[in-house]
Every structure is written in C-alpha cells, then in structure tokens.
Design a binder for these strands. Sequence first.
DNA 1: GACCGGCGTTAAGGATCCGTCAAGATTCCG
DNA 2: CGGAATCTTGACGGATCCTTAACGCCGGTC
Lengths: 224, 224
Amino acid sequence: MTGVLVVDDDQHLLKALRITLQAHGYAVETAADGEAALIAASRNPPGLVVLDLGLPDMDGAAVLRELRRWSSAPVLVLSARHGSSDKVDALDAGADDYITKPFGLEELLARLRALLRRAPETAEPSTVDTAEFSVDLGRRMVTRNGEPVRLTPTEWSILELLVRNPGKLITQQQILATVWGPAYEKEANYLRVYMAQLRRKLEADTGNPRHLLTEAGIGYRFRP
Amino acid sequence: MTGVLVVDDDQHLLKALRITLQAHGYAVETAADGEAALIAASRNPPGLVVLDLGLPDMDGAAVLRELRRWSSAPVLVLSARHGSSDKVDALDAGADDYITKPFGLEELLARLRALLRRAPETAEPSTVDTAEFSVDLGRRMVTRNGEPVRLTPTEWSILELLVRNPGKLITQQQILATVWGPAYEKEANYLRVYMAQLRRKLEADTGNPRHLLTEAGIGYRFRP
DNA sequence: GACCGGCGTTAAGGATCCGTCAAGATTCCG
DNA sequence: CGGAATCTTGACGGATCCTTAACGCCGGTC
C-alpha cells in the first residue's frame, strides 16, 4: 500500500483528501505546516507527497527543496495561484506536477496514478555476479573463482559500462564515446583489442565467450 | 540531446513549438496526424512526446494506447477540453501530464523539464511478446522459448519497425526506406530474403507464419 | 490451361567485421 | 632517470553478414 503525505493548512480540505485517498487504497498521513511535513516525511518516508504552496510557517518551495535533499518521491503541488511563474518555479524546484485550486478530485486521483506509475525506482545492485566471475561496482574490483583479477583503467571502464546494463546491447559508438570520448567513435580497433583482453582475463573459453558477447556490426553485450 | 515528438494538426502551433523547443536544446520532430506520429515514433524513438488529443485521423487516446504498447517515453497531452473526465481518461490511458489550451510556453517547458527529470534517458525496458517469441526493444534482444535468438543488424531493423507498429500494415517502401535508405525503395528483393530469414528464426512453421504476415502487393504486418 | 507477376527459398560470392598477436609509443611511478 | 605497466597501431586469417541470382510455388488473368 502506497503512503501519501498530504500537506495543507486548510483543515477541511485535509480531511476531505484523507477520506478520499483512503477510500482509494492509499495510506494517508497529513501535516498542516512545513515543519510538520518535513518531520512526518523523515519519520515515515512517503511514496508520494501532495503539497500546498500556501503554508503558514514557511514557503512551500522551501519545503520542496528541503524534501528534495534526501527524498526522490514524486511531489504534486496544490496552489491557489494561477500565475505562470508560480508554476515554473515550483516545477523547477523539484515538483512533478502542479494543479490549481479549485480542482476536481477525479483529476487529482488520475494525476496521482500517473505519478505513481513512474515511481517504482530500482535500487541498483552494487555487485553483479555470473557463474564464473563477480564484479563489485562500488569497490571497483573483479574476482574470478575467488581470486582478484587485475584490470587496467580502460578495461574497467568498458566492463563497468557493460555490466551496468545487463543484457542490453551497447553499441561500439557508445563504448568508445564513454571510455575514450566522443572524438574516438571511429576507432573500433581499440575495442577489439580490449575485448580480447577482457575475455582472456574473465572468460574460461576465449573462443566461446559466455558472458561478453559480440553482436557483429553493432556492439557488445553482457549476459549475467 | 533529447528528442521530442510534437503531434498536432495546427500548423501554426506546430511551427511555434518547433522553434521554441529547438531554441531550448531539444531535437524536435513533428507529425500532423496520428498515423504519421506512430511511424515517426517508431523510426526515431523520442525521449518525450507532446500529443494533441484533437487529431483529424484518429482519436488522440488511440494514438496514446498504440504508442504505449512499446514505448515508455513520457507523454504530455495538449487539449482544448477542460472537462475532468477528459483529463482522467488521458492520464489513465498512459499520459504523464495534461494541460489545456491556451497554455503558456513557459509552463509547458517547465512541465517538460519535470517529466524528463523523472525519465532521464530511460532505457526503454519495453518488450513486445507473442505466443512464441519475445522482442525486448530496450535491450535489442529477441528470445524464443526462453532461448536468445541471434539477429543480424538488418534483420533487427526490419523486425523493430514491424514490432513497433503492432497490427499495422507497413509498406515495402516504408521498410526499405527505413532500413536501407530512401534510395533503395525499389529493391523489393532484399525484403523477400530477409523476411524469409526472420521467419526461419522466429516462426514455428515458416510456410504458415503466425506473426510475420505478408500482404501481397503491399507490404508486411506484425501480429502479436 | 498457359501465361505472368509477386513471393518464398536457397546458396554462392564478395565485402565487411572481428579476434588475435606483437611491436612500438606513451605514461606512470619509484 | 629507468623500468614497468599501459596504451596505441598495424597486419593477418577467419568468421559473419550483405548482396545477387536463380528456381519453384502460388494465385490471378486471359
């Protein structure tokens, strides 16, 4: 069940939103001012925030910025102000959507659904394992059968790019641009040399690689 | 540079948006109706779509649903209709934001920034499945009965174009122009060779294809 | 029933791309 | 300054891919 934090100083609106949201299956928490909102958010990190800009104690934009320092939850801003600059400021401060009062509850719910549809963020793993070797992205270390493997900086850059996108085909241009810079996109020769090097260090059978695969004419692919 | 596809039947608005967006560093492509929009999107997948709901040839919501079958790019809907149900329908059909005409360009740009912030060059994890094989557009990978299928670059280009327009008839000229370039629109022979190749790799019974269908005299069609 | 255009299939040739090796150039570090 | 590690460059055989041509099949037409 998704947790929603509603921040507004209008007690009536707060109550109405709580009831409506709970009826639609959200776990609702409320706050009436900016300070309470930040405390509530840190105590019980919400999956989504509905934030009124007109708060008694502090600017709504300030709440937004504080929140954005550690939370990446989607924020939908409510406001009575129709001005274009208000909207631009709020959106650029980190808000994900902005609707003006008065608004329809149906529209609010639809916008919440749209925001939550984008929400499920994947925390990337710090290590990637295969049957034969293991790559620790945080420590910048590779082990094979428990033994550490020495990689040169260039070798590591290529391997990291491939391993961070498991199963995805990475074009030669992407690798060359990432590792050597955009000016080297034609030097496909480098890649051949370094892929051979990587396979010699990581693959059991260099002739039949099982994890560092070639896609002729396009690029390479890492298969976990 | 992020690619934005703008779909609207109002030539004036189209031109104004193109100029404004280009001035802000986006690569802009435009389409005046739903069909052109879907072709343009599959030919050059955009990072973001601005879609007018009032199109001459098909319902804007239908365009949205077709696009959502393979693309996860954020979609901002433009509309002249203020009704709550219109907004709810569009948002639930897969749109990420909805603004009504007339709108301020500054607000539009701010909303685009907010959307792109959420989907930073999203590696489209979109896949299209059939009963026998599955096409992972983001990873550029095809699996059949769980086993990966090796496709050459040309084979992939053709399959990608067809799969990104499920159920839609693609003419031979469109395929040839997209894969080999506009100068090869007469080389229908290439297509026969490669369609046979694709069917041999993907279809159970190449004589009776179930997903890669021929439309004699016109072109080909992908049926999910 | 013969002709004909469009399609599917196959295979061979040539062009392109890849893996490999090794030697020279460069950078790094004591 | 000198040695070691790393990077660059070029060349070669082999693998992969694209092109091209030929042939059989099917459906429509006269």
